[in-house]
């Protein structure tokens, strides 16, 4: 049973790696940010699968931090330009 979990985790990992291409090719910073967010979600999926497979339930806490990380980095990224800084 745990073999299946790890196999699916490998599939997710490969899918994440392929998604990295979007970070490399862009074209806009927003596209890259988006890809980074996708990574966060898939990473949570991988951790959710690893937690029972490795027998470490605490991995769910790491997944929680991933979720917060995605929210924080997007918030830091989508800051609005303030009027006086406008070129």
């Amino acid at each position: 049973m745990h073999e299946i979990l790890i196999a699916v985790a490998i599939i997710l990992l490969i899918s994440m790696s392929v998604g990295l291409i979007r970070i490399v090719i862009g074209p806009t910073p927003a596209d890259r940010m988006m890809a980074a967010q996708l990574l966060g979600t898939s990473g949570i999926g991988v951790l959710a699968l690893l937690a029972p497979a490795l027998g470490v339930p605490a991995l769910m806490d790491v997944a929680l931090i991933f979720a917060l990380l995605a929210a924080v980095s997007v918030a830091a990224f989508t800051r609005r330009r303030v009027g006086q800084d406008r070129p």
């Binding site: 806009t28 927003a30 988006m34 995605a70 997007v74 918030a75 990224f77 989508t78 800051r79 609005r80």
Partner: peptide, 17 residues
Amino acid sequence: ASHLIAKRALRGDGEDY
């Protein structure tokens, strides 16, 4: 997050565009 990203892209007033 997707709403924010789309909004910044649409209005073009983000710091990173």
